Amino acid sequence: MKKAIFTLSFLMIGIGFLLAQDKFPSHLWHKGNIYGTDGAVYGGEIKYDLENNLVQLKGQTISTFTASNVTYFELFDEVYGGIRKFFSLPYSLNNDYEVPVFFEVLTEGDEIALLCREYIASDSRNMGGYGMMGAYGMNPFYGPQNMVGYKLAFNYYFVTEGRIEKYSLKKKDLFEMLPGHDDELDIFMRKNRLEHDKRGDLLRITAYYNELN
């Protein structure tokens, strides 16, 4: 009987992780519009795949568009809130020749634009005294354990003078990407407790930099 309960609990934990993965924005359908390179506009429920640079439109059938035939698409993200815009821009992802690639635009100004590309990364976290079994009171004798799940992660890019440059997520490189106002940016970041590697904070820092210019 105990073995059956243990097996069921373990199965439910596994299902929980699978369900959690379905909450990522790229796994959901969103209300939005797709703007084709031919000038046509397609509205309805859309789903995007940045890994393969595809966006789909759901109607009576599902239509698939590539970054080559889409200028940009926009959607309302009910999970994370707000309207998000993704533009197709020429870029070399693998140090090869440039191809159309989808980038989400976080903020843009006369000097600098901040783009990003999201991806799903594995996330192994040490649970301390609450291991996979210990958290549920099934077996407290295993001690600290690692639970492997998934998280939403981002690569960030700055655009200046028509060039797209990937950001290393190092603070010193942030000031190189945003030159000329190191002291002002440093004070702004410390005053507002902003980090150099978080999505919302990078958006605020870049928007402030554009105001300075």
Rank of each mutant, 00 (worst) to 15 (best):
D182F: 06
S9D: 08
N213D: 06
I112L: 02
K172M: 05
M177R: 04
G82Y: 09
L57P: 00
E111H: 08
G109I: 04
G43Y: 12
F102G: 03
N69I: 05
K172A: 09
N33P: 01
E176P: 00
D183C: 03
M177E: 05
K58R: 13
Y167W: 04
L114M: 11
N192F: 07
K166C: 01
N210R: 10
F76S: 13
K171C: 05
S88L: 02
D22P: 00
G39H: 07
D186E: 08
N139T: 06
F73P: 01
F17D: 07
K198I: 10
R204N: 09
G39M: 03
T64R: 13
M127Q: 14
V99C: 02
L93P: 00
E195K: 09
T37A: 04
K31T: 11
F87Q: 00
D77V: 14
D201S: 11
L114S: 09
M189F: 06
Y42I: 04
G36D: 01
D197R: 02
A121L: 07
Y35L: 03
Q21D: 11
L194I: 06
K47C: 03
G129P: 00
K3M: 14
Q145G: 12
K172P: 01
K170A: 12
E118N: 14
T71Q: 14
A113M: 09
K3H: 15
A67M: 07
V79W: 01
F86Q: 03
G129C: 02
L174T: 03
S124G: 09
R117Y: 06
R163T: 13
R84P: 05
Y150C: 08
E118M: 15
M132H: 09
L54M: 15
I83N: 15
L50Y: 11
F188E: 07
D201N: 11
Q56R: 15
E108V: 11
H30F: 06
L115N: 03
L89H: 14
L174H: 01
V159Y: 06
S92P: 05
L54C: 09
E78M: 10
L185W: 06
D173L: 00
Q60Y: 13
R163C: 06
L202F: 13
R190K: 06
N155A: 10
V79A: 11
D183Y: 07
K85V: 12
Y35T: 01
T7F: 12
E195I: 01
L93K: 01
L19W: 09
P179D: 04
N126P: 01
P140N: 11
G129N: 06
E165F: 04
Y130L: 08
A4K: 15
S124T: 15
T71P: 00
R117D: 05
G32L: 06
K2I: 13
L174D: 01
L152K: 14
